[in-house]
Design a binder for these strands. Structure first.
Length: 657
DNA sequence: ATAGGGTTAG
């Protein structure tokens, strides 16, 4: 039998909470008095209120249930369980604290079952400190109690403390189970850890194997996902390959891993394998989102349409994330009107839907349109998120809308109470930099109340390249070399800027620096979809069986467009060579090979869609303009940060990119 | 009693 340990002095209770329930409100300030709540145990006889409380909980009357709880002299474990559940449902921390207090007053303070529920409750309410406190005060720590606190720490991103507790758990001899490992693994992904998180992940991997959990689908899928999030695709795929049983979640996790780690072709291939071989794994919305993302990153419109058809047949076209991804997919394939149509026909929209639409207009250079959509969103009562501002600021940046961008940036804090983050500053630096207002950009960086990070310096360095500002580029890159010494892209960017200024000694110096760090220039490649198949073309193209044909084709094309006025921009070549050699190098750029491949292998009138893994170079940009006119074809080319649509000799970006 | 994959940006 339970012993009622009343009364307890408040300081022995779990927290310093209000002692009187009349101060309880569901969401807002806990100090607001509610007239209907009264605390008078004497008016309530010994008869049990449990049934009343439980039915109040089930009907969603949390306030009344808490009131009834406080006049119940003998609440049961079941009653507390239901109340805890309701607090989470109603997302009310203040109610939770009252329930917790009464729980202790009623003598359940050491009940490990309820301790587990309390920890999970505080975790779900976002208060990891309260969760930890319950854990600390619970003497009998069952595996459920341990798992609950690990879950709370993982969710809060407190990896360091999580691993510390996991060690303690092993030390005191508590045996981990499959649930434990999923939480511990998730804890490895959080970034605040000082120890190398990937190394920790591998250690946990070893624990999992040693304790015989390699057959547990949940554990292995989490492990796969952890490797995926670290970008270790080969580890992820070997975990996936070793799984004795796979289900739709593990397949989806692996597809997502490829899609997110710049291997979209692999993602599509794996999807195909799953459809053919794993009959019991039926794709669900989560799967389809990743597949659509893969199509989007490839600008593989034909594949994307096929997948869209499948989504419709399966009736998944009412799922918000699927539709949001469809907007992005069409937009990133250069089909804005279709993306817009998906948006228009949506029965329900969330802020992500709006952001997706803003983003696709923005990346095509339709800045004013993007701002219009942003304003329309506000007008419809949708609260902008911090991503809304990133998308709309980027849209301004691509279109050179400096004043508009600055006004939006100001409004973030003034109007919407969103504190601009590093990313927002990076957008503004980009916006100012592209518009050749580098002084303003650097002033803004200096005025920031936090230390500028890689995104901000990266934006500045990118702008220096466009503006060919060596001095500022040196400053930005020295910061970047410190912040991310192993990012080859920064070295390449700096050497490009030197090359543009014909400072060949400096070009060589930076190249040496790059090599001495054991880094390599990221090879540029282009992808093109022809008749639903995806082809990759690398700048130094050795493997394509059609290479001779491509070269011959390009040489002819070159002669033709030179007659139309095209002048190769040999200054983008970072080697100190003579002009003719530079022209040969330029002709080998992957974008040009891709366009030649597309022209040779597609029918007249078909649009050419190409994606580039790097930023398009100025020469390729000029080349495409002439080619589009000469062969009378539309060429869509998406590079790392925006879209170019070449038609009849002009580009949709208006040469501003 | 507790658990695994996905949407927008850069």
């Amino acid at each position: 039998m339970r012993v009622l340990r009343m009364p307890l002095p408040v300081k022995h209770g779990p927290f310093q909470i209000q002692t009187h329930p009349s101060s309880y409100t569901s969401h807002a300030s806990p100090r607001l008095p509610l007239s209907f709540v009264s605390f008078n145990p004497s008016t309530n006889p010994a008869n049990n209120n449990d049934n009343l409380i439980q039915s109040l909980c089930k009907q969603g009357y949390l306030k009344q249930a808490v009131k009834a709880l406080y006049s119940d002299p003998n609440p049961t474990q079941k009653t507390f369980e239901l109340l805890i559940y309701s607090c989470v449902e109603e997302n009310s921390l203040s109610a939770a604290l009252h329930v917790h207090r009464k729980l202790v007053l009623s003598g359940f303070g050491q009940d490990p079952f309820l301790a587990t529920k309390l920890i999970n409750m505080y975790c779900d309410l976002g208060s990891v400190d309260h969760a930890c406190k319950v854990f600390d005060e619970t003497r009998e720590r069952t595996i459920f109690v341990w798992n609950a606190v690990l879950r709370a720490l993982a969710k809060a991103g407190r990896g360091e403390k999580l691993l510390e507790l996991y060690c303690r758990m092993n030390w005191v001899g508590v045996k981990s189970n499959r649930f434990t490992y999923t939480f511990v693994l998730k804890g490895c992904v959080v970034s605040e850890m000082s120890i190398c998180p990937l190394k920790k992940g591998k250690e946990i991997h070893a624990h999992i194997l040693r304790h015989g959990f390699e057959g547990c689908v949940h554990v292995m899928t989490t492990l796969l996902d952890v490797y995926a999030k670290f970008g270790c695709v080969s580890y992820a795929s070997s975990v996936f390959g070793a799984m004795p049983t796979k289900n739709i979640v593990s397949w989806s996790a692996m597809i997502a891993c490829y899609a997110k780690n710049e291997m979209p072709v692999k993602a599509l291939e794996l999807f195909q394998v799953m459809m053919l071989e794993a009959c019991d794994s039926v794709p669900n919305p989560v799967t389809m989102v990743s597949v659509l993302q893969a199509c989007a990153s490839l600008a593989a419109l034909e594949n994307g349409k096929l997948v869209h058809g499948y989504v419709l047949r399966r009736g998944l076209d009412s799922i918000l994330p699927v539709l949001n991804t469809l907007i992005t997919m069409y937009g990133r394939c250069g089909e804005i009107p279709t993306g817009q149509r998906v948006f228009d026909y949506m029965k329900k929209r969330d802020v992500v839907s709006w952001n997706s639409l803003i983003s696709i207009y923005g990346m095509h250079g339709f800045g004013k349109k993007a701002i219009g959509i942003f304003e329309n969103m506000i007008h419809q009562g949708v609260l902008p998120s911090y991503i809304s501002f990133i998308t709309v600021l980027c849209a301004c940046s691509h279109a050179g809308l400096v004043e508009e961008g600055k006004i939006l940036f100001e409004s973030m804090l003034n109007k919407y109470r969103i504190r601009p983050s590093m990313e927002h500053y990076a957008c503004i630096v980009d916006l100012l930099g592209r518009a050749n207002r580098l002084d303003e950009a650097i002033k803004l960086i200096e005025s920031m109340d936090f230390k500028p990070g890689r995104t901000v310096w990266g934006s500045l360095l990118g702008a220096c390249r466009i503006q060919c500002n060596v001095e500022l580029a040196e400053r930005a890159s020295s910061m970047l070399f410190e912040l991310e010494p192993n990012n080859a892209g920064n070295y390449v960017l700096l050497s490009d800027i030197y090359a543009k200024s014909r400072m060949w000694n400096d070009v060589r110096r930076v190249r040496k620096q790059l090599e001495s760090r054991g880094l390599q220039k990221i090879p540029s490649y282009s992808r093109i979809e022809v008749k639903r198949k995806i082809y990759s073309l690398v700048s130094v193209e050795e493997y394509n069986p059609q290479i001779e044909e491509l070269r011959a084709f390009l040489t002819t094309l070159l002669t033709e467009i030179k007659n139309q006025g095209y002048v190769p921009q040999t200054n983008v070549v970072i080697y100190d060579l003579d002009e003719e050699e530079k022209e040969v190098i330029l002709l080998g750029h992957s974008g040009k090979l891709a366009v030649a491949f597309g022209l040779i292998n597609s029918s007249k009138g078909e649009t050419i869609r190409i994606t580039n893994n790097l930023r398009l170079c100025e020469d390729c940009h000029g080349f495409m303009k002439f080619v589009s006119k000469f062969v009378n074809r539309e060429i869509f080319l998406r590079d790392v940060n925006r879209f170019h649509c070449f038609r009849d000799g002009v580009c949709s970006c208006g040469d501003y990119w």
